[in-house]
């Protein structure tokens, strides 16, 4: 919360016991126990609101339509790379206002082209984003890149845990050891068996294991499509399609 909101419109703290900032008439400035997170010499009579990121200076319960690229109601859209059409409205399966890039790398895969396995990316509790690949102890905990695949898919491919597999998306490819697990179960969608696999991000490019040539330099996000959410600008890295084979 912005600390201006801890004061009433006259610049006096709402709670005398827990003061953060207040207006000082003598100093003609906001002073207090905290650094004012707004214009410090703006007197209360100017009515500068605490929510400095909104034009009106106050908080919003409902956002105006103009503030969002889509909305105002919650909606479900399928990812751009999805094995199914959106069951709610198949004619408009995915979000029409996302930002798509148009470079030669920005290709999307479809099941018709053989990209039939759903892949998702995530981080592990042992890691902090990509940084910890330069920390020896974190590298010891998770020494190598791996791809989590269901037992059923491993049987189909004839792959054992620890053997290398290759993922190919419409953009690129990625090779790592298979982690055969019961934790990811195959799904039945539209009467068809669909496999989901998990791809932790962390390894690749440069780090302790990469510099010793124990891990490949390729990164997980070579595979993911750059399709960007129109409001939060979050790329669609959590659901995309790949082919999977023995490496």
């Amino acid at each position: 919360m912005y600390n201006r909101a801890s004061c009433d419109p006259d610049g006096k703290p709402w709670d005398a016991d827990r003061k953060q900032v207040w207006w000082s008439e003598s100093a003609q400035s906001w002073v207090g126990n905290d650094v004012p997170d707004f214009k410090a010499d703006s007197p209360p009579k100017e009515h500068m609101g605490p929510f400095i990121m909104n034009a009106e200076g106050v908080g919003r319960i409902f956002g105006p339509l103009a503030a969002f690229a889509d909305g105002p109601f919650p909606e479900h859209y399928e990812p751009f790379e999805s094995p199914v059409q959106n069951p709610l409205h198949p004619k408009q399966s995915n979000n029409p206002v996302v930002k798509k890039l148009k470079s030669p790398f920005d290709k999307l895969g479809t099941t018709a082209d053989g990209f039939d396995v759903i892949c998702t990316t995530y981080r592990l509790t042992e890691h902090y984003h990509y940084w910890t690949k330069n920390n020896p102890v974190n590298v010891e905990l998770i020494p190598e890149a791996f791809i989590e695949i269901p037992v059923e898919l491993a049987d189909k491919l004839g792959v054992k845990g620890g053997e290398k597999i290759k993922l190919t998306s419409a953009c690129s490819f990625y090779i790592a050891k298979a982690f055969v697990t019961k934790r990811i179960k195959p799904m039945t969608i539209d009467g068809k068996q669909v496999f989901q696999i998990g791809l932790p991000i962390h390894q690749g490019y440069r780090g302790i294991q990469e510099d010793r040539a124990r891990n490949a330099r390729t990164i997980a996000n070579r595979l993911t499509p750059t399709v960007v959410d129109p409001n939060a600008f979050t790329p669609e890295f959590k659901g995309f399609l790949v082919k999977i084979e023995k490496a």
Partner: peptide, 18 residues
């Protein structure tokens, strides 16, 4: 990690084992 660091042991090589 805490055990390793408090007792002063260094990084040792490990291998992914499914």
């Amino acid at each position: 990690v805490a055990c390793l660091e408090w007792n002063g042991y260094q990084f040792s090589d490990t291998t992914f084992d499914n």
